[in-house]
Simulated scan of single mutants.
Amino acid sequence: MLKDHQWDRMEPHLPGKRMDPGRTAADSRLFVEAVLWLARTGSPWRDLPELFGNWNSAFVRFSRWSKSGVWDRLFATMADEPDFEYVMIDSTIVRAHQHAAGKKGGCEARAIGRSRGGLTTKIHAVVDALGNPLRFILTPGQVSDITQAEALIADLPADHVLGDKGYDAKPLREAIEGQDAVPVIPPRTTSPQVPCDYALYCERNLVERFFLKIKHFRRIATRYEQTPRAFMSILCLVSAFIWTK
């Protein structure tokens, strides 16, 4: 799945290189390809094709990198030139497979909740003016979008913040204006009617397109990972992959 130019961007930011302290990793490119293959197909780890090597070794390495924050740092590094003319916030719900729901700790701690679709996780995301991802927050599926909005946009130097009517709330508008940005959020019919740049608001389709892109990866369209950390790691790798295309 990785083209040469994509790997050339990723490789310097992954551990296990010859100049790094400790053990040199065995074929990091093949390993990243393996995780991307699993993310695309939604297959169990045990079904990893032999050409990628031992499935358990790949799983242990993925988990180790996840715990040490390698995937998060890779995503942050790839997202190096965002377009802050405006940013868009939205959320999407993914169904949690029964395999994701069996770990101890409670559904809230694992970002799994019950909504109309059953066991679900909600991905809250903010993207830049080109539709590239900048930040994610995971919550149980029934959590309202507005509760995560301020955390999503915190410290982003955007000129405008676009959101749908679900983000129509006075505290959020004030938070956006407090960051020297302009809220582009249509008011609800039951709320005070405030100005909205509807021509710019039409650009909000880019965040919807981003959700379509990541849901081409079946391991994101359906959550199989038991821990939020592992699911976020898949999100970060796929998002880094999108940034390098």
Score class of each variant (00 low, 15 high):
residue 212 L to T: 11
residue 186 P to Y: 13
residue 58 A to P: 00
residue 87 V to Q: 05
residue 94 V to M: 06
residue 52 F to Q: 06
residue 164 D to T: 09
residue 74 L to W: 12
residue 210 F to P: 05
residue 228 P to V: 04
residue 74 L to N: 09
residue 156 L to V: 04
residue 80 D to A: 15
residue 57 S to Q: 09
residue 136 F to S: 04
residue 12 P to K: 07
residue 230 A to W: 00
residue 234 I to Y: 09
residue 111 A to F: 04
residue 15 P to Q: 14
residue 63 S to C: 08
residue 226 Q to T: 13
residue 160 H to Y: 15
residue 201 Y to R: 01
residue 85 E to K: 07
residue 230 A to V: 05
residue 191 S to L: 00
residue 135 R to L: 11
residue 156 L to N: 01
residue 201 Y to C: 00
residue 182 V to D: 11
residue 102 G to Q: 07
residue 239 S to A: 14
residue 85 E to S: 13
residue 95 R to W: 10
residue 188 R to P: 04
residue 95 R to E: 14
residue 3 K to L: 09
residue 124 H to T: 03
residue 164 D to W: 15
residue 195 P to Q: 04
residue 11 E to Q: 14
residue 161 V to T: 02
residue 94 V to S: 05
residue 92 T to I: 13
residue 114 R to C: 07
residue 211 F to P: 01
residue 76 A to N: 10
residue 243 W to A: 08
residue 146 I to H: 03
residue 183 P to N: 12
residue 204 R to E: 11
residue 193 Q to M: 07
residue 229 R to S: 09
residue 175 A to Y: 14
residue 171 P to L: 02
residue 103 K to H: 11
residue 44 P to D: 06
residue 93 I to D: 09
residue 65 W to N: 06
residue 179 Q to M: 14
residue 205 N to V: 14
residue 203 E to Q: 14
residue 225 E to N: 03
residue 96 A to R: 00
residue 124 H to C: 03
residue 177 E to H: 03
residue 163 G to E: 08
residue 164 D to N: 04
residue 203 E to L: 11
residue 115 S to V: 02
residue 189 T to N: 12
residue 211 F to S: 10
residue 41 T to H: 14
residue 133 P to R: 09
residue 227 T to D: 01
residue 214 I to W: 06
residue 186 P to K: 05
residue 233 S to P: 03
residue 10 M to T: 05
residue 47 D to I: 00
residue 134 L to G: 07
residue 36 L to A: 06
residue 168 D to T: 05
residue 16 G to F: 12
residue 166 G to F: 13
residue 42 G to A: 13
residue 38 L to Y: 05
residue 95 R to I: 13
